[in-house]
Nucleic acid binder design. Structure first.
Lengths: 217, 217, 217, 217
DNA sequence: CATGAATGAGGATTCATTCAT
DNA sequence: TATGAATGAATCCTCATTCAT
């Protein structure tokens, strides 16, 4: 048993190191030796813990995915209304990206290489489906309870929100960030809740005012 | 003069083909032979038109970048107010992604491989800077004219918008799109203009109402 | 520790084999596979010991150069007068060429390819400078002690002697030798000591006789 | 006829240019394009005048060889005694190297690549045989007439002299010359005629004196 | 368990040569 | 005759993976 624990722990340490290396050198650019050296072990030892290069990434991706799922679940559990749950989710997403920054960068590199339909269980498409479904349902609930704009198409909006989130990740990977994470998060929340344009919000508010009259009438 | 060949045009044809191949096989996965075969030429001929694999991508990236710049400029030129220009830009961005879909996919793959500060002239960071500056100024103008929410921090919002846009691109690369591009675009525009939450828009509208009284008073 | 291999020794064995291959096929004509096969190892293994083709030659050249230097030093150490040292040096040079025959042949091939000023530390020019300086000084000493003809210009003679030596090497490379090494060496020594022409030696001897008289008088 | 003259002349011009290029870039390093460009013609045109890269060198080598032969013959024709002929030959050799410097350099490069027995008609071994035979006979004649030291083995000495000559060439190829050609030539002549060592010449002269007595007695 | 020496499949790139114009 | 576009054979080198110790 203790042996098995040791092995797992060492695999975790290696995997974690590997991500750092992948991040710096790119998945393709990183050689097995680089990882081994960074982990302070021999090249051959790597293969005692992982079948091959891909396997290391899969291992880490699983951790990443699991952390996302449990974190997202927890975030939503702490909120009452659908809208709050949505905002909590966004907050969590920002935190998650910060905590798993290197991972995110690596996945852009790795999954970006047109490997699309390769394996259902091991792809971002997978995580997307899960999250988009959650958000879509959240939106529907929010629309039912009147908290969320009924004019939005739940599926499209969900996909869009996830896309936006990806974009924030991607942007950090592609270019040095110019603004601080905090002001970015603030802008994101403000934008998501009330949009950019003053006129549009007004018009909608007015329209809704009319609706109330009409309904009320 | 020997066999007359329009070198410029042939280079364009090869580059275009290469992008398709890159998209399908990934930049790393695509072998020079693959590109040559796809272009219906010999392996060596490739090197008559491009110094190496990288050069092909650079060539295409330049075209992509140029198209983006001129397109964005044109889009904004056709609009009167800052807010309209912003919306035009968003519209154009969606069109651009559609027109240059393969390119976008390839760049995610290529630039994702931690090659960050390599060369100023050849990186997405470059395009980002340009666009973010434009948007930032647009927001400031919109805020000055009262069209855009003054609570938004121009720089952060600009970076965020570009990030969002990237996200939409990335999402298409990473997973098969679930919604039609049209409904996605509609959702995006609605979201950008008035946000998701009903309450927030209301609250803001009300606040502004108060301001009017105060001002008026 | 894994398979214990004396890396130093193996590198030496590979390098030595490589020289043989270079000699037979020419530096350019020899493919890495040829070397690997001759050494009884895999192509990739070569690169465990040497960064590239060039590096193999450099490695061997260093050995050759070191052997020359220590050998020349030892040869001269065993002689008393400058003239003896010079003759010892010539003897050693002949021995050296015999011992390092393949090397010499390879260097003609390698350094002959107009790569002149490439790298100070790695060129025959280097070895030449060292040797020519030694010989030049030897001649000066010999002239001072009256053993060597004072009419000779030390620098030019030194360069010439080294050139002659090179010529002997080169000749073996370019064409099958017609005479036995021994008779060649004998001829060289005779020629170096007293020249070819009878008349000249006589004339000089006579002149010197006159000088003696003049001095004596 | 004029056509044929044109062709020949152009071939000569191309060949001459090629030698310059070979000299600068090495035979292997020089690409056909380099030669074509240097000659101011198209790559394909090269093949109108020469079957292939090798052929260019052969063509030039033939010129070089012919010039050597006729020059050597003329040099010897102008001298009366064997010893004078030998000295004339040496003088001519020095002139020849100067006139055909680039050629010499190229041949070191080209023939140095272990291509030994390839083709009798096209190799330095060929030229060597011719020259060595001439010199050997010259020495025998000189020995018969008493002008040349009878202790020298004609064949070995001939081979040696040619080797020496090669050495002077080689040295110029391998390293920047330190001494002026003139002082080198002077040293060479002095060395060849009377050697380096004073004592040896004396001893020999004395010995010969004894011989005279003995013979005379 | 740990290791690193050995390996060869695989890919980018070069360049002499051909040949249609 | 002159040309340069096209070509693929040939070669260097990399690196994931194996395996003897």
């Amino acid at each position: 048993m203790s042996r098995s624990v040791d092995k797992k722990e060492k695999a975790a340490r290696i995997g974690s190191t590997a991500i750092t290396v992948f991040r710096k050198l790119g998945y393709h650019g990183a050689r097995m030796v680089d990882i081994a050296e960074a982990a302070g072990i021999g090249k051959g030892t790597l293969y005692e813990y992982f079948r091959n290069k891909d396997e290391i990434l899969r291992f880490e991706f699983e951790r990443y995915f699991a952390a996302f799922q449990s974190g997202a679940t927890a975030a939503m559990a702490g909120a009452d209304t659908p809208a709050d749950r949505l905002l909590s989710l966004v907050h969590f997403a920002f935190d998650h990206v910060t905590d798993w920054e290197d991972h995110c960068g690596v996945y852009v590199d790795y999954f970006g290489s047109g490997r699309r339909g390769e394996e259902a269980a091991f792809s971002l498409a997978n995580i997307y489906t899960v999250v988009e479904d959650i958000i879509s349902r959240l939106i529907e609930e929010g629309q039912a309870s009147g908290e969320i704009d009924r004019g939005l198409e739940p599926d499209a909006t969900a996909e869009l929100l996830v896309s936006f989130f990806d974009g924030v990740v991607l942007h950090g990977v592609f270019s040095e960030r110019r603004c601080k994470a905090e002001s970015l998060r603030a802008a994101a929340l403000r934008l998501l809740t009330s949009g950019v344009l003053v006129g549009a919000a007004d018009r909608r508010a007015e329209k809704r005012g009319d609706e109330r009259f009409e309904r009320g009438g």
